[in-house]
Each structure stands twice: as C-alpha cells, then as structure tokens.
C-alpha cells in the first residue's frame, strides 16, 4: 500500500510502487494533453513507463483543455 498526494488530495493505492503509466491506467486518465510532475519534477511523456511513484510522493497529473 502506498499513500501519495495526487493533485493536492490524499490517495491510497494497494501497490508497493507504480510507474506513472500504471497510475494513469489505474485512474483511467486517458487524456492526451497531460502535464505530470512527481515532487515538483516534470516527467516527460516518454518516461511514463519508467518514472516510479513511491510512498509519500506528491504527484500532479493535469489535463489541459483548450480555450483562452
């Protein structure tokens, strides 16, 4: 079980660790235009399969939509 902060909210997930891609799958985030950060550090799209989220991490997954 890991406890993380996802988008400013507490979240518990029943794994020891997971990649960004696994988190996106778990949360059903299927959007294309995402910004992902772990502990404030930008995770680029081509690293979603390697970047690991661990217990206590602060994760931001933003889906940006058009308009302005």
């Amino acid at each position: 079980m890991i406890n993380i902060i996802l988008n400013n909210r507490q979240e518990s997930i029943d794994v020891d660790s997971m990649t960004v891609q696994e988190l996106l799958n778990h949360k059903n985030f299927t959007f294309k235009l995402l910004v992902v950060k772990i502990n404030g550090k930008l995770i680029k799209r081509d690293s979603y399969d390697e970047a690991v989220i661990r217990d206590g991490d602060e994760v931001t997954v933003l889906h940006l939509v058009s308009g302005g």
Binding site: N7, N8, L62
Partner: peptide
C-alpha cells in the same frame, strides 16, 4: 488550484 509553482484557474474540464 496551486501545484507548487504552477497555478491553474478554470473548471479544468470544459474545452472549446
């Protein structure tokens, strides 16, 4: 919402 140094204003869902 504030995410560290990034601030986001809007409903974060309604796109054009």
């Amino acid at each position: 919402e504030q995410y560290g140094n990034l601030y986001v204003c809007g409903d974060q869902q309604t796109e054009v």
